[in-house]
Design a binder for these strands. Structure first.
Lengths: 301, 301
DNA sequence: CACCGAACCGAAAATATCTTTCATCCGTGA
DNA sequence: TCACGGATGAAAGATATTTTCGGTTCGGTG
């Protein structure tokens, strides 16, 4: 009992706004209205009963409860408690966010500040929203995998390559695939004990889902790194690692923050695996460092 | 109504234990038991219903409600909300800045926290250290460039590709090069009005310096994105954008934070250029978004 | 020592709040 | 246009909270 509650407002502390953004796409219109109200004014909503909040958002009690469920609470009662906690926290806490929308005529200095702030926010949200149990399971699978394939396209393709590079550096066998045909061709080779990772923000990139599905059907452990935990890709994923989504604006495409978020997840995977395989990883890292040294001219000064 | 609640858990925030002590003398025996339980474990009590708390303290619901009233709340419901707030507060209060070194035996949850924290730190440092004048000049050069070449190897190669992808999306002509020979071959084509960007953390990666030098000698505007503003690469750079370096540890190679830093710089360049070329950039972004839409299966709900 | 009154206390009724069910409605795709 | 499936809210049902009310205890008193 006690643990349940700790879970419900201890875990994702402060990440409510992030969760709302992450789940918003999978919400119906009315639920979005409720979620929005809650994210906009946690303190105010904490003061309201189901009926009150339903009236405020022009919806029904049922919808409010449904929204609470979607946000991960057993019911409205628990959401309300979490809200009260949040309110107290941010009241005692730090300076709240100013507007971070980037305008066309913002001076470059503002752009730097705002981008940095947004990305920091994204990192915090992602860290708060990551399911460590799933992450741990993914690390375990990776550490003992015979081989690992990583699928990603477009911006996510770069993240896939980043992960692959890192895993290679600690002596694991990993490949990144951007070509869907080659990816599927290779996925056929996978079997139980191997790992396949799909990286896709939308979760609905067919070119990435297909190879993951193939890997899944061949018995490999499949992992999805996505911002949409309810999307198509998770259908074939044994493990799902959720990245956070932040508001995108015209000048700041979603790809930007999803990349930051994905990279953090990837880093966590890497460090986790390096821990597990420390005996071999540490010397391997040192060796790759040594091997690169001669490619660098001695720095001036 | 709303005001009442704000008053009730905004006002005496945190002083609950003190209030219990103050009021204890005027309490009856059963009420003291309740008050004591509440003061001892706010979080735990927040998880309980009236009935639960009554059972825990061996009293009745009525007594719990009376106690809540005595403590200044309209009823138990509000006391419970306040308790939740208190719990959240004291949970967030503790343990902000421990060591951020990642140890081999750190649980995965700590790894996530520490990595996120480190990367946030890196972002803040980078933003603070960026020379906006240089950045502005680089943006200006990019916005009017006939073509742009970007050089990067290894982890920096991914950053180079990231920048290239972005510039292409807003209609600019950009290429990323990881192959030093091809890079030099292409650099020969550059001339005044073109831009060459070298991305290297150490600033001493020969394979990246060479093409930049060639571009420099052919009259292109050259930009270096490096963590070492006094290194070899800056010799051939008209503009230098400094990325930040944070401590690296055995399990956290420098590549990790330099990448974060480089990506922020690259994002700033991109947004800056998008601002300058808004008339063409906005439609281009929208168009590329549209073009990709059909590659995504409609998301499940 | 028996009695009285007052305050304390908790069982249970009354009320408020939350949850579930179900019929209706709306948008969507054939 | 029609049929379908999901979204929605009204209202019934379940819980939680508050109130009521009578029993109990305790200290004082004759």
């Amino acid at each position: 009992m006690t643990q349940d509650v700790k879970e419900s407002f201890g875990g994702p502390a402060g990440s409510l706004a992030a969760k709302v953004r992450t789940l918003a796409p999978s919400m119906t219109r009315s639920m979005q209205r409720v979620a929005e109200a809650v994210a906009a004014d946690p303190a105010g909503c904490a003061a309201l009963t189901v009926t009150g909040l339903a009236a405020l958002t022009g919806t029904s009690e049922a919808t409010v409860v449904r929204t609470a469920r979607l946000l991960g609470y057993p019911g409205y009662r628990d959401l309300r408690l979490a809200l009260a906690g949040l309110a107290a926290q941010q009241q005692s806490g730090r300076a709240p966010a100013i507007t971070t929308d980037i305008a066309v005529d913002d001076p470059i200095a503002d752009v730097v500040t705002k981008l940095a702030y947004e990305e920091q926010q994204t990192l915090a949200d992602t860290a708060a929203g990551l399911d460590t149990a799933q992450l741990d399971a993914a690390v375990t699978a990776l550490a003992s995998a015979r081989r690992t394939d990583v699928y990603g396209i477009g911006a996510s393709g770069l993240v896939a390559q980043d992960l692959t590079q890192k895993l290679l550096r600690i002596g694991l066998i990993a490949h990144a695939h951007s070509d869907p045909h080659l990816a599927v061709t290779n996925a056929v080779q996978l079997r139980s004990g191997d790992v396949a990772i799909a990286i896709t923000h939308s979760g609905s990139t067919g070119d990435v889902i297909e190879p993951l599905r193939t890997a899944f059907e061949h018995g490999a452990t499949t992992v999805a790194v996505t911002g949409r935990p309810d999307s198509a890709v998770t259908q074939y994923a044994d493990l799902v690692l959720t990245t956070s989504t932040s508001r995108e604006t015209e000048l700041r495409p979603a790809a930007m923050s999803s990349r930051t978020s994905q990279l953090l997840v990837v880093d966590c995977l890497f460090v986790g695996v390096a821990q597990r395989t420390y005996e071999t990883a540490a010397p391997a890292l040192a060796a790759s460092y040594e091997a690169l040294a001669h490619r660098h001219r001695s720095a001036s000064r």
